[in-house]
Design a protein around this nucleic acid. Structure first.
Lengths: 156, 156
DNA sequence: CGTAATTGTTAGTATAGCTAACTATATTTC
DNA sequence: GAAATATAGTTAGCTATACTAACAATTACG
């Protein structure tokens, strides 16, 4: 009985109300998951940057800053933290000595995958109260969000 | 064509994969919206606490800390910030002098509602690329998440 | 070649999280 | 009823994450 047909019915989802509730739901989902991530011993900004490195491959500090929607000085400090924890390395670019390429170390990849597994297990443990049909609805909604996000211009 | 019937089909949403994508979608939605909130001049922790005060009514500092899943010293500082900005007030409890009741000021309510309007408009502007049917699916999925969150024990 | 632009880092500030230690009040126990 | 204990907040001090401004180094360009 998810978003079936219904003539126009009790739901009547106007965009603003949905936007508001989506925002709230996103906040609360992340708040719950956050504590799981703390188990890794690294803060959220570092984990997020590390994730970009692991899934996107090595890249310059500037690219990493853009990916994380953060200013270069902020990313510089995040990277310093990762390097101090031996989770990433700074490499010089042979073509352009101004650039600093950042790469996740094997240890960084391991830590990220473990954290990801923990997080997914935790979140999944709560999602599996949902029926198969409900999961289908959730899956469809996430696909929609992914599409909206893809088309969403990243204004600076 | 959201989460209709389909025998078992291309989607095959296993819980772990959905959990992972939900997490990612939540992160990216909030990252986009974050900049809108910055326009208010107050940080996210203050806005969030203020929101609890406005929608939940006056409450003690401890209750507010629990609601925000934050330790009392942290909430104490957040409240100090709100008070300095004239967005909230500390009131003494007549029954128990240890307690400090916190209340949003009219100015605080105004600021919150304006920010909320901005955020909803912004997010809504991107959501309205979706068809009516897709909005129904999103609405249904958010309802599911709200239910899961309600039943989700708040482990400390 | 000398000036511009680009890329990162350093310095300084603010917010937001924590634990530990403290104050002030209530409650319980003897 | 006084002493011990428990509860509610605050203060102090640490860390992480964000920002802008100012700087250094390097590259690109006129």
């Amino acid at each position: 009985m998810a978003g079936r047909k219904q003539k126009n019915p009790p739901s009547l989802p106007d965009v603003a109300a949905i936007a508001d509730r989506l925002h709230s739901a996103a906040i609360h989902v992340l708040r719950r998951v956050r504590k799981q991530d703390a188990a890794s011993g690294e803060g959220p900004a570092r984990l997020s940057a590390l994730s970009v490195l692991v899934f996107g491959g090595p890249m310059t500090l500037g690219q990493l800053a853009v990916a994380e929607q953060v200013k270069p000085p902020t990313m510089s400090r995040i990277v310093t933290g990762l390097v101090n924890s031996r989770l990433a390395q700074r490499l010089t670019d042979s073509k352009d000595a101004r650039r600093v390429r950042i790469r996740a170390t094997p240890s960084g990849e391991r830590l990220l995958h473990e954290g990801r597994r923990r997080r997914i297990e935790y979140l999944g443990r709560h999602l599996d109260r949902l029926t198969r049909q409900e999961l289908d609805t959730l899956d469809a909604a996430i696909k929609l969000l992914e599409r909206v996000l893809r088309e969403w211009p990243v204004e600076k």
